[in-house]
């Protein structure tokens, strides 16, 4: 056991070190890609005259050659400084990310938690009652979750729950005047798609598992159904769900942009969109870096969890 832990630790460290070049490449490519986009951070309907423009460029070192800017930027981010935002001038990028990322993460956790809890249960119930009305209802909901886009689900929920029935406030955040109820609609909206996928995944793998030989053996040995399902079927049928959850979490956090806008969630997604439209170079880079770290870390965590769930997988 001790040696297993040791190989595991080694593996984890090696993987973590492996993340560095990935991030380096992402940062470098993004840095130059953004600069290719036409326009700049200080464009406005009425562009300031040349002399004022020059002052602004000088203030943000945009008048330096691009490779100098790149080196300076890389130097800063190694020290953990994402620089000043070009458009939100009263604070640094670090400040905005520190303020908004936790909100996006919290929303993501709750949405994914709901999706997992309901999705796995729906999948199990459907599989155990295959081709019954329960199965059809659950899978019909799942199809809706997969096919209807967020920007439709969100406003529809808002229309019924806030405007028609007046049960929930239209929008806001947990720290605002309406408190925790504000998280319900954005979380449900965001949970729809992963819920649907998880329900379908767990149903399919559950069915496959139920038909496998070792389950039949267990049944013929006279074990009770509930024991078979808990001890044998569940663990195996959760594997595909686990491999889905990592990327799903990353995509929930990075893809919550629309939901954040509709429900006024003060998350990172809103800055991501706004900064891209504003050509706010440093803020774009900051959000890209955070998102890449989340994506890469999630894949990594899934690999680790996998090794615990599936005895066939070992890491060296």
């Amino acid at each position: 056991m001790w040696s297993l832990e040791k190989t595991m630790t080694k593996y984890i460290i090696r993987r973590l070190i492996g993340l560095i070049p990935t991030l380096f490449i992402v940062v470098t490519i993004s840095f130059f890609l953004i600069r290719i986009a036409p326009g700049g951070p200080f464009d406005a309907e009425r562009r300031p005259p040349e002399q004022v423009m020059k002052n602004i460029q000088a203030k943000f070192h945009l008048d330096d050659p691009l490779h100098v800017q790149y080196l300076r930027y890389m130097g800063d981010i190694v020290r953990g400084d994402l620089g000043p935002s070009f458009r939100y001038q009263d604070h640094d990028v670090n400040y905005y990310i520190a303020n908004s990322l936790p909100n996006s993460l919290l929303l993501g956790f709750i949405a994914l938690g709901m999706a997992l809890l309901l999705g796995v249960n729906a999948g199990i119930v459907s599989a155990l009652n295959q081709n019954s009305w329960i199965d059809y209802v659950a899978m019909a909901i799942a199809i809706i979750g997969i096919t209807v886009p967020l920007f439709v689900i969100g406003p529809v929920l808002m229309y019924f729950f806030a405007l028609r029935w007046d049960i929930l406030p239209t929008s806001g955040w947990i720290t605002g005047r309406y408190g925790w109820v504000t998280i319900i609609m954005p979380a449900v909206t965001l949970a729809m798609q992963p819920f649907a996928t998880i329900a379908r995944l767990s149903r399919a793998s559950m069915l496959e598992m139920l038909r496998s030989d070792f389950i039949r053996t267990a049944q013929s040995k006279g074990l009770r159904d509930s024991v078979i399902i808990r001890r044998h079927v569940l663990k195996g049928s959760l594997l595909p769900v686990v491999s889905y959850v990592g990327p799903a979490f990353a995509s929930i956090v990075t893809g919550s942009v629309v939901v954040e806008q509709i429900f006024r969630v003060p998350g990172l997604g809103r800055f991501f969109v706004q900064s891209a439209l504003n050509r706010d170079y440093t803020l774009i880079m900051g959000t890209v870096i955070v998102y890449s770290v989340i994506l890469v870390l999630m894949n990594f965590i899934v690999d680790i969890i996998y090794s615990f769930l599936d005895p066939r997988i070992t890491y060296k």
Partner: peptide, 17 residues
């Protein structure tokens, strides 16, 4: 209140928020 989505803003107004 900062708002990105005008429809949300309009709904907030209608809802007395």
């Amino acid at each position: 209140l900062p708002i990105d989505d005008n429809n949300t803003g309009y709904n907030m107004y209608l809802n007395g928020e």
